[in-house]
């Protein structure tokens, strides 16, 4: 969290001054989705269903943005070819 600002530095009307992309929800995760690109058929269902906009399609392949992925496992569950598996977070 950035340093707390005083009221003289805040916009009036209580409008938020930063986008939530600053707030990394990735540290909520217990298990992480890992994509097996050999199995992936690029159906985009994981991209469509991800509640956290954490699946990235870069035009060629699917990747997971671990900054935001909360590890819900929905992508792995919905993957029709089981190309995504939920694996323990790597320890240090």
């Amino acid at each position: 969290m950035a340093e707390l600002r005083g009221y003289k530095e805040l916009p009036i009307g209580a409008v938020p001054f930063r986008l939530s992309t600053d707030y990394k929800t990735g540290d909520w995760r217990a298990l992480r989705p890992v994509v097996d690109h050999n199995k992936c058929v690029k159906c985009m269902l994981c991209w469509i269903y991800c509640p956290d906009m954490a699946v990235i399609w870069d035009g060629e392949k699917i990747t997971i943005n671990y900054d935001y992925c909360k590890g819900c496992g929905l992508c792995a569950h919905e993957c029709p070819v089981k190309a995504i598996t939920m694996e323990p977070e790597p320890t240090e």
Binding site: S20, K24, T25, D52, C72
Partner: peptide, 13 residues
């Protein structure tokens, strides 16, 4: 945008 704090696996977003 991501960074919202709905529960993991929530259908609303």
């Amino acid at each position: 945008l991501p960074g919202h704090r709905l529960c993991a696996g929530c259908a609303a977003p």
